[in-house]
Simulated scan of single mutants.
Amino acid sequence: MSRLAVAVAAAGTLLVGTAAPGGNGIEDEPAHVIAEKGRQSLLTARSLRWEGQTKDATGTYVVDFRVDARGNCVGTVAVVPKGGRMEIVKRGQDVWMKPDAAFMKAQVPGPAGQETAELLRGRWMHGRADDPSLREFSASCDVSHLQRAYLPVPFAADDVEKGTKALVKGVPAITVTGRSGAGRITLYVATEGKPHLLRIQGQVGGVRGEADFSEYGRPVPSRTPPPAESVDVSDLRQPGGAA
């Protein structure tokens, strides 16, 4: 065998089992290993961006949140088809919410919704995260909520299947489908860089939805609304208030 042939054969041997340039090799793993690595990337995330939608009897909620493990959050939630949009800022246990008139009317039926929208006049409602008026939306504005809601338990090794390659917003991924808890879902796990979970699709907790995850490790913006543009939620409960 010539020296060239030996060199080519040796190079071929070295390349067997290695990832393509820029790849992380995750697509070569068994399906349950891919699923668990994707799951762990969400469970150990200190911060990330969550974009998704869930459907229930009242309609479709579309969210775009940047969240971290310290309880900080910045984002928006919209309701389809009723319309309306709300901005959310959460810093620790302080929460600010700014719903537009359509969102307020959709969430608070009758005259109360209209009255609250008029009282706010485009300002932020401010209160504590455990306030009953704010808890419903502020509770989901946290990394721990995602970790509990989407992937509470590992996939069973005998109940997960590897799918096809895909792109999630331009990022290469491999899909796996299986059961995690009561829901059967499909995960999209990045095949370049760290094997981050990029997308979840399927039935979770009786609600069908989809969520995209990105910007792992990026800090949540720290700016909060100024007092002059905020109304304490307790003031909306005073005589003449509507909350």
Rank of each mutant, 00 (worst) to 15 (best):
M1S: 14
M1W: 10
S2Q: 08
L4G: 04
V6C: 10
V6F: 14
A7Y: 10
G12F: 14
T13G: 15
V16M: 14
G17F: 13
G22C: 06
G22A: 08
N24T: 13
I26N: 08
P30Q: 04
H32T: 09
E36Q: 15
K37W: 08
K37T: 07
R39Y: 10
S41E: 01
L42P: 04
A45W: 03
R46F: 05
R46I: 11
R49T: 13
D56F: 08
A57I: 08
G59Q: 10
Y61H: 09
V63K: 07
F65D: 07
V67Q: 03
C73L: 02
A78R: 12
V79Y: 12
V79G: 05
V80W: 13
R85F: 06
E87G: 00
V89H: 00
V89K: 01
K90C: 08
Q93N: 14
D94L: 05
A101Q: 11
K105P: 01
V108N: 07
P109Q: 09
T116I: 12
E118R: 15
L120S: 09
G122K: 06
M125T: 03
H126P: 00
F137C: 00
C141S: 05
V143I: 14
H145K: 11
A149M: 11
A149G: 03
L151A: 11
P152Q: 09
P152A: 09
A156G: 15
D158G: 02
D159H: 11
K162I: 02
A166G: 09
L167N: 07
L167R: 11
K169W: 09
A173I: 04
I174F: 08
T175W: 07
T175M: 09
G178L: 02
R179A: 06
G183M: 13
G183W: 04
I185W: 00
I185R: 03
T186A: 09
T186N: 08
L187Q: 04
Y188F: 15
V189C: 14
A190T: 12
A190R: 10
T191L: 05
E192I: 12
E192L: 06
P195D: 13
I200N: 02
I200E: 03
G202W: 00
G202R: 03
V204G: 01
G206W: 04
E210W: 05
A211Q: 12
F213L: 15
S214K: 05
Y216E: 02
G217H: 09
P219D: 00
P221R: 06
S222W: 02
P225I: 01
P226E: 07
P226D: 05
S230Y: 01
V231D: 01
R237P: 01
Q238S: 13
A242M: 11
